[in-house]
Design a binder for these strands. Structure first.
Length: 635
RNA sequence: GCUGAUAUGGCUCAGUUGGUAGAGCAGUUCACUCGUAAUGAACAGGUCGCCGGUUCAAAUCCGGCUAUCAGCUCCA
């Protein structure tokens, strides 16, 4: 039996099996606020959340995304209410729910310190205890503006003024606190049992750097304390996977004060990098690509021709040689165009796929730098495909499949976005329309779910972006496919068609890794530094127990090396436990312990990084097994 | 670039109200010859991010700069 207590105190009962939707629909709009207690399908469930939105009712649990949103959104109102109580001069901006939490932006003279956050949290606790009922009301435009003016909330006034003419302007009230808000919210503040303020950061009003910077307080909240603790614990664990931390611990790369955003790759990092590049070269050869390398520094004039001067100048580095101005390439495209242009092309030779591991330099804002994920110089695994207009769809599908296959090898999950024409763009509406539709059709044909990112395309064309996740759920654009009608035009590229006339080819720019640096960053976090054997900088570590076994160990090492296995021998005069501990911390996939028993039997005692002691096997069997694992790129 | 925070030996971090630096790990040396996540001892290592100011005296207080971290903006 589901019992529903309505706003007016009356109670309704429903049969087991009644869906939440049916319950919601049977309650009249006027009785919008409900509180639930009872069972569903004979099972006791916490249904104590009601969604109040435009006088419609639906019933939510914390397991529903919408329910979570309402819960977090109310949490953000509690935060704002606490801030207004403690710092009445603070002006309210916006405060939505976000993934795993919520934030609220304030304009306040006083900079909030961690101590202030503690005070605010305390006040929030009080508000929760006060069990304030949350009420929704609507006002006509003029009255709404008057109310917010009276409260001296100029940001809210601005928000209302920008609402469309016919918009319903709703407010939510809890105790003395009133906020402009579309809702929905949960019915009262006391449901927020577990919450925590996480940090303060700056954020521009309405996301524009031309506007004032406000103070944003981030927080999270959960229905149960245990859930929150679990979440915070997960966050802590995820931080241990941070590629910047692991990059240092595992000695893969370093970034020094002498070169902010310019990473150094260390010997172990280079092993991974070279393996990725070898793999990349092999796959591209199979897929019909040719490899080129274009210069890093080229005459500035080239960048005027390509359009980068007008659209990308502020992100470029420049230099001067013999009193002539040169630019350091931020992209490989113009070089690629020049390579195509060096000679005549027949339609019979298209598509022509030219790949380049191209080192580019971009002046990224200092505050945007982030380990290997956002740097100022990086290698794009670029390719430019020159083709007939009729080949567009097929080529895009080829690239989509190539990217999917690549990511599959590493066990990555990704999501796809289609980015459309930005404000600052070259070319006509029609060309953009055609290019965008080309990408969309290819995605739809492949049945790929994608999100449309309006206005986020490159200045020369729309793009399909492939995003990968880091350890704490931030996503990074890696692969991208960009369809370009502009550069062939600008560089006056052509091919000779079957009619003997010159025609304009179409270009695809595409990357699979995106940037090798970023991809390695993602890779480190994805595997938490424990790379699959085929990628591990050191695949095998030989650990003799005492120096009597050194000679045998060196012979085994030699044998493994001859098979191309990356192996190290730890001949130090240390206890076996100590050697194992170090090898384990270095995340070496296989440790081979060698004592007298192994020496006599011509075996090795295999200890796997993840499964521990595996017992002794013959050296040849071990070699056979590990080579199979490497060749299959097992993850 | 913006807002806020941080910066101490190779690494991780102490350093109380200003009185010219301390630990653990790593390193070196010595002893120990050892069976699946740290053997013991000794030694060595730092003009406390950089520049300037206040003070009899600055790692500590103040200012500027640089880098890093969180977020915004931007983006592979």
């Amino acid at each position: 039996m589901i019992k529903v207590t309505l706003k007016d105190g009356s109670m309704k009962e429903y049969e087991n099996g009644t869906t939440l939707k049916e319950v919601a629909e049977s309650i009249s709009a006027g009785l919008a606020r409900v509180a639930l207690a009872g069972t569903v399908d004979g099972e006791v469930k916490d249904l104590s959340y009601a969604l109040v939105k435009d006088c419609e009712v639906s019933l939510l649990t914390f397991n529903d995304e919408e329910g979570k949103d309402a819960f977090r959104h109310t949490s953000s109102h509690v935060l704002a209410q606490a801030v207004k109580r403690l710092f009445p001069e603070a002006k309210l901006a916006i405060g939505p729910s976000i993934e795993n939490g919520y934030y609220y932006d304030f304009d306040s003279e006083k900079a909030f310190t961690p101590e202030d956050l503690a005070k605010i949290e305390k006040e929030m606790k009080k508000i929760v205890k006060e069990k304030l009922q949350i009420e929704r009301f609507e006002l006509p435009r003029e009255e709404a503006i008057a109310l917010m003016k009276e409260k001296e909330e100029q940001y809210k006034v601005e928000l209302i003024e920008d609402l469309p003419e016919d918009a319903i302007i709703s407010f939510y009230k809890q105790g003395e606190f009133v906020d402009l808000c579309a809702g929905p919210h949960i019915p009262s503040t006391d449901k927020i049992k577990a919450f925590k303020l996480l940090n303060v950061a700056g954020a521009y009003w309405r996301g524009s750097e031309k506007n004032k910077m406000l103070q944003r307080i981030y927080g999270t909240s959960f229905m149960k304390k245990s859930e929150m603790e679990e979440y915070l614990h997960r966050l802590e664990e995820a931080k241990k996977r941070d590629h910047r931390k692991l990059g240092k611990q595992l000695d893969l790369f370093t970034i020094l004060e002498e070169g902010p955003g310019f990473p150094f790759f260390l010997p172990k990092g280079m092993v991974i990098r070279n393996l990725l590049e070898d793999f990349w070269r092999g796959e591209h050869r199979k897929a019909g690509y040719q490899e080129i390398k274009t210069p890093i520094i080229l005459n500035e004039e080239l960048w005027h021709r390509s359009g980068h001067w007008d659209h990308y100048k502020e992100n470029m580095y420049f230099t001067n040689i013999d009193e002539v101005d040169y630019a350091i390439k931020p992209m490989n495209c113009p070089g690629g165009m020049l390579v195509y242009k060096r000679k005549m092309h027949s339609y019979r030779d298209l598509p022509q796929r030219m790949a380049e591991l191209g080192l580019v330099h971009r002046h990224e804002l200092s505050g945007a730098l982030h380990g290997l994920m956002r740097v100022r110089c990086f290698t794009q695994d670029d390719a430019h495909i020159f083709m007939l207009p009729s080949q567009i769809k097929e080529e895009i599908i080829n690239v989509i499949e190539l990217i999917d296959d690549f990511y599959h090898v590493f066990g990555f999950k990704y999501h796809v976005e289609l980015s459309t024409k930005p404000q600052k763009a070259m070319g006509s509406e029609e060309q953009w329309e055609m290019a965008t539709e080309g990408l969309r059709e290819a995605l739809e044909e492949k049945g790929i779910i994608f999100k449309v990112n309006e206005g986020d395309g490159a200045f020369y064309g729309p793009k399909i972006d492939f995003h990968l996740e880091d350890s704490i759920g931030r996503t990074w654009q890696c692969g991208t496919i960009q369809l370009d009608f502009q550069l062939p035009e600008r560089f006056d590229l052509d091919y000779v068609g079957d009619d003997g006339e010159k025609h304009r080819p179409v270009t695809i720019h595409r990357v699979v890794f995106g940037s090798i640096e970023r991809f390695i960053g993602i890779l480190i976090e994805h595997f938490a530094g424990a790379f699959p054997t085929w990628l591990a900088p050191v695949q095998v570590k030989l650990l003799p127990i005492v120096d009597k076994q050194h000679e045998y160990v060196l012979a085994v090492k030699d044998k493994l090396e001859k098979k191309g296995i990356r192996v190290e021998a730890d001949l130090r005069n240390e206890k076996i436990g100590y050697k194992i501990r170090e090898a384990q911390l270095e995340k070496v996939p296989y440790m081979l312990v060698v004592g007298d028993k192994e020496l006599e039997a011509n075996t090795v005692a295999v200890r796997s990084r993840k499964d521990g002691d595996q017992g002794s096997i013959s050296v040849d069997v071990f070699i056979e097994k590990i080579i199979e694992e490497i060749e299959n790129k097992e993850i």
